[in-house]
């Protein structure tokens, strides 16, 4: 995935400390993401470890997938609170979100390895915000992120929010991940 300036889609809202076991429970790590069909299967299990009451805030108990067997979710943007993606180093976490059709996550800040994995593989765009969006946005709201202007607009309510600049990871996201970036920089033969 190359970096898009505008990302628009329906929001699915989660809380603080959404860890990698909630994003992709460990029993599904037997799938090998290097095999395209198995990569797609991760989409079905994305967020299946979130306790029901904490899925789809503010109400909770909102399923991420319309049907249990769907690979792709009807939501394209995740909104979280603090420390999104904490826990294990499994790259399967951003892969599962990508496979489920998530384009970007907006959270207050990220656990280090999850952020790095998201950027390295070019799976999803991890955006930071200084605002507590997980208490302002409702699951199902239509969001429009402008990554250049560093703003988010809630098309459902008309509210506007500020995003933090992506900063030094922009060249890696623009290249489409660590390997294309390293090739473009001449660090690897193209």
């Amino acid at each position: 995935m190359k970096l898009e300036r505008i990302i628009q889609g329906r929001a699915y809202v989660l809380g603080d400390n959404v860890d990698t076991d909630q994003i992709i429970p460990a029993q599904h790590l037997t799938l090998n993401p290097a095999i395209p069909e198995e990569y797609r299967q991760f989409g079905r299990h994305a967020l299946s470890g979130v306790p029901p009451a904490q899925g789809g805030l503010p109400k909770g108990h909102v399923p991420f997938h319309a049907n249990d067997t769907d690979l792709v979710s009807g939501y394209q943007i995740l909104v979280g609170g603090r420390n999104f993606g904490c826990g294990s180093s499994r790259e399967h976490a951003p892969i599962a979100l990508d496979a489920a059709g998530i384009k970007a996550v907006v959270a207050e800040f990220y656990a280090r390895i999850f952020f790095r994995n998201s950027v390295n593989g070019g799976y999803i765009v991890p955006v930071e915000t200084g605002e507590r969006l997980c208490e302002k946005v409702c699951t199902g709201d239509e969001l429009r992120l402008d990554l250049e202007a560093c703003t988010a607009e809630n098309l459902t309510t008309g509210e506007k929010y500020n995003l933090r600049p992506l900063g030094e990871v922009v060249p890696i996201l623009e290249a489409g991940g660590l390997f294309p970036f390293a090739r473009a920089q001449g660090m690897l033969p193209s």
């Binding site: 993401p33 294990s88 180093s89 499994r90 790259e91 390895i113 790095r116 994995n117 390295n120 593989g121 991940g177 660590l178 390997f179 390293a182 660090m187 690897l188």
Partner: peptide, 14 residues
């Protein structure tokens, strides 16, 4: 420190 598959794949080659 811990890393993901992409970082590890990069180290494996370089």
């Amino acid at each position: 420190t811990g890393v993901g598959n992409t970082d590890a794949g990069f180290v494996m080659g370089t």
